[in-house]
């Protein structure tokens, strides 16, 4: 029996998922001893205390709730009760916008840094200092100057995704093989055409690797940023559901954050493959 590696891996993955769900189910099934407590406190604690049910939802609870969400992802019952689809759309929109601005800034700037040793040396101290700053540290400053929480979140996304793209673009551009540049030179190709026909394709795999790192970081940061600024978005949703003590919804949100992050990464991975050339 020689099943393909992929198929066997899929079977193991499914088995692992089954085991995980099983343990989760058993661990949260309830039936524990009902604590001996004052009736008032018991009322406060709800089912957990009165029926011995675990506060942690089981996989079936989560599944049922998820199904509910999936049936109506876009409902809007006011500021504190919106469908998951809407919340995700807000987050993706902010990430998309901040990321796009970062692309527009980082790639031309990275080109300049990569092509000019002078600019590279001149900007290096600034980049070295700015790069390690946690993007969230910018938040108060952004809120103070921009005075708009949503735009501040977009700014934070911009600032966190700009560095990997900037550095990778500069690195890719500076590392273009001399002989390819010489080919363009002997063909009297002008600077602009050379940038687009030789340097860009040669550096594209490195640039896209930077873009892929950036989208991952941006998606990590948006959840934290939205927890801070509040209002809308999947990060706010997580925080809000925590305040509502709805662990089920928190788990669902965590699951969705993971899935969307994976999708974003896959999209960039596909683009990277498209521009990668074999040598």
């Amino acid at each position: 029996m020689t099943l393909s590696l992929r198929f066997r891996a899929a079977i193991v993955s499914l088995a692992l998922l089954g085991v995980f769900l099983g343990i989760w189910h058993l661990a949260t099934r309830g039936g524990g001893a009902t604590a001996n407590m004052s009736p008032e406190y018991a009322r406060l604690m709800g089912l957990t205390a009165t029926q011995g049910k675990s506060a942690m939802p089981g996989p079936l609870d989560v599944g049922a709730k998820l199904w509910e969400h999936l049936k109506r992802p876009f409902y809007d019952n006011g500021p504190n009760d919106k469908g998951l689809g809407i919340q995700l759309a807000y987050s993706i929109g902010r990430v998309g916008l901040g990321y796009l601005i970062a692309v527009i800034v980082a790639i031309p700037l990275g080109f300049m840094i990569g092509m000019s040793p002078l600019i590279s040396k001149a900007l290096d101290p600034f980049i070295q200092v700015l790069k390690p700053i946690s993007p969230l540290a910018w938040m108060p400053l952004a809120l103070y100057t921009i005075k708009d929480s949503s735009i501040s979140a977009i700014f934070v996304i911009f600032i966190c995704s700009v560095w990997p793209m900037l550095l990778n673009t500069a690195f890719g551009v500076a590392g273009v093989r001399k002989e390819w540049i010489n080919v363009a030179r002997t063909l009297e190709v002008g600077t602009v055409r050379r940038a687009f026909t030789v340097i860009l394709p040669a550096a594209a795999p490195t640039i896209l690797t930077g873009m892929r790192i950036s989208i991952g970081i941006a998606w990590l940061v948006i959840v934290a940023a939205e927890m801070l600024v509040g209002g809308t978005g999947i990060g706010y949703f997580v925080w809000n559901e925590w305040n509502n003590l709805s662990i089920t919804n928190v788990i669902i949100a965590i699951l969705l954050i993971g899935l969307v992050g994976m999708l974003l990464d896959q999209v960039l991975a596909r683009f990277t493959r498209m521009v990668t050339f074999p040598e």
């Binding site: 093989r177 080919v183 002997t186 009297e188 030789v198 040669a202 521009v275």
Partner: peptide, 19 residues
């Protein structure tokens, strides 16, 4: 003065653009 289309170079490492 500089490179020119009048003078073509064949490089030892062929220097083809791989993409």
């Amino acid at each position: 003065e500089g490179t020119s289309l009048d003078r073509a170079v064949i490089f030892q490492s062929h220097a083809l653009l791989p993409w």
